Amino acid sequence: MMTNLFSIFDPSTNIFNLSINWLSTTLGILFMPYMFWLIPNRYNFFWNFILLKLHNEFKTLLKNNYFQGSTFIFISMFSFILFNNFLGLFPYIFTSTSHLTLSLSISLPLWLSFMIYGWINNSQHMFIHMIPQGTPPILMPFMVLIETISNIIRPGTLAVRLTANMIAGHLLMTLLSSTGPSMSNYLIIILIFIQILLMILESAVAIIQSYVITILSTLYSSEVN
């Protein structure tokens, strides 16, 4: 019996005193070898089409900062988050992206590397970003303070956005499914239909959130040059 609503996100389940829930983050690797069975196959065509579209999108966003291979890190991050978001929709598979431990470990090192690179190599450009063009002199100290705070909280907003969206959908589906035993037959049919719609919505959220966090990371990287 579930004693706590948030126990569905509990990573403490273990076998032989070994926590195995986080192993779900490696399950995405199992999807990769399939493309080597027969080349070219439909899966290979479909995945290459997605990666090419993402590459062109990130290349456009990076603008002058683009160099050969610079989009690989963002495409890899998109793939990793997408696989983990989708795997969390399957029963009895731990949703690793619903924890700040994972989402912060993705966004914080990226943001730190962008900031360190920008302040060391383009410090004048970074100072210019602190004050928007056309700001009155009297408001400049406040604008520097606001821009500094908004810059510092960027990795936190990336992590919380991903985590909150993953948690919200899972909690809603759990709450609705827990009311099933007390419902009549015709209400259960309606409940199943609602759950199917929520599953479709969660699938869309899994794609959108992985895309959003990757696009925002790309935009943050393009600001340091």
Rank of each mutant, 00 (worst) to 15 (best):
A206Y: 03
L112K: 09
S24Y: 00
F49N: 00
I192F: 15
W37T: 02
F86N: 15
T3W: 06
S19P: 07
S76H: 06
W37C: 04
I93F: 07
S184H: 11
T163E: 01
F67M: 08
E223L: 08
A206P: 12
M166G: 08
S113M: 14
N56A: 01
T214R: 09
K63P: 10
N121E: 11
N65Q: 14
L175K: 14
S70R: 12
L175M: 15
R154V: 15
S222G: 07
T97D: 06
E147H: 12
F94K: 03
N17T: 08
M143G: 08
L176P: 10
H55L: 00
P181Q: 12
S178T: 11
I15K: 01
M1D: 07
P11F: 06
R161Y: 03
L30K: 01
I190H: 04
L139E: 10
F83E: 15
E202V: 09
T179R: 10
I75M: 01
N85F: 01
H129Y: 05
L162G: 03
I208F: 13
T218M: 04
S123Q: 10
M199P: 03
P141D: 01
R154T: 14
L112C: 12
M115V: 12
L216A: 15
N165K: 14
I8T: 11
F9L: 03
G180P: 03
I106D: 00
G88S: 08
F80Q: 07
F16E: 05
S217D: 06
G118F: 09
M126Q: 00
F78M: 02
Q124C: 08
I153P: 06
M130K: 05
I50P: 06
G156K: 03
M35L: 15
W37Q: 02
N121S: 10
L187P: 03
L18P: 10
L201T: 03
I39M: 13
M166P: 13
L171C: 06
F114R: 02
Q133N: 07
K63T: 00
F74D: 05
S150W: 11
P141S: 02
F80D: 04
M130W: 13
G28Y: 05
M1C: 12
F9G: 02
T174W: 06
L38P: 01
L198K: 02
L176I: 13
I208D: 13
M166E: 01
T3I: 10
I50H: 05
Q124L: 12
F16W: 14
I15M: 01
D10W: 07
F9I: 03
I138S: 04
N85C: 05
V160G: 07
N121K: 14
T60N: 09
I120Y: 13
